[in-house]
Amino acid sequence: MGNVLAYCEFGGSTLKSSALSNLSFARAAAAAHGGEVIALLVGQGASAAGADAARYAAKVVVVDDAALEHYLAETHAPIVARLAGEHGASVVSATATTLGKDLMPRVAGLLDAGMASDVSKLAAGNQFVRPILAGNAYSTVEVSTDVICATPRQTEWPAAEPGHAGVVTTAPAGDVDALGAVVERIESSKSDRPELTDAKVVVAGGRGMKSGENFKVLEELADLLGAAMGASRAATDAGMVPADWQVGQTGKIVAPELYFAVAISGAIQHLAGMKGSKTIVAINKDPEAPIFQVADYGVVTTWEKAVPELIEEIKKVKAAR
């Protein structure tokens, strides 16, 4: 007993960067439980990423089956629950991505396990620190079931470093029963920019941008900095930009080196998603906007004036290098 089964998302032949955060959580949990990390890859094509996973964990288990073409909680959860038992796991984890959040409580339900969501720190083997109330407080919870499920938060756990030459084994999918659930289609807003949750720099706009057209100038700034685009809920709800740009309590949680909040007031639900950023810059015409309370640098002005100037100044800095 005492092992940690770490469910890892992958794309093609490599692990997703979100999975690396889970693996660093898994290492910490395994140390506390006196066990080892077992990386688990489930899905059609999982074998291709097995070798990459073996760089991070001494043991890798791959479940690769044509019946697992699309991720479904209904088909993945029973596999994870079964393997948790077979591998003597006392902790089962997945990064708190939308997939991890969909899957892990279902696994917990099957295992009758207690679960800690959005874990930011391990206080002891079965004690987890996690944000509550939209990040306005941190709670330490003790989970007293034999098996514990957890979803570490990507922004709170650094990517695990490679350094293993792990052994990859395969496990059968068993009976795959989707309970009638099917994925009919996925609509994604494709972009060449870095993923919002991985980006070093994020440029986010709010309702004050007034229209999707006006976001173009922010996108120009983003491309200059190699940044990802983000937005407040007010901007996504108004249809100015795609919904998956939303940062916040119900959007994505980001913690880049540099976050630009442009024409965003700074409601607590927005702050919940970006407060962890290293440097925050706010541009807002209202000197009383709450965003200035968390911003390292604030400029009271309109975006119409500020952003084009910002682009010019940064171009100058880049040209001088």
């Binding site: 004690q127 306005n136 007293s144 640098y297 002005t301």
Partner: peptide
């Protein structure tokens, strides 16, 4: 089976500064 052992407020962000113009920023 999940019991709260304690809560704390997140560390406050250190006070930021307002800057006058974009070149200074």
């Amino acid at each position: 089976v999940i019991v709260e052992k304690g809560v704390e407020l997140p560390p406050p962000r250190k006070a930021g500064q307002k800057v006058d113009d974009i070149p200074t920023l």
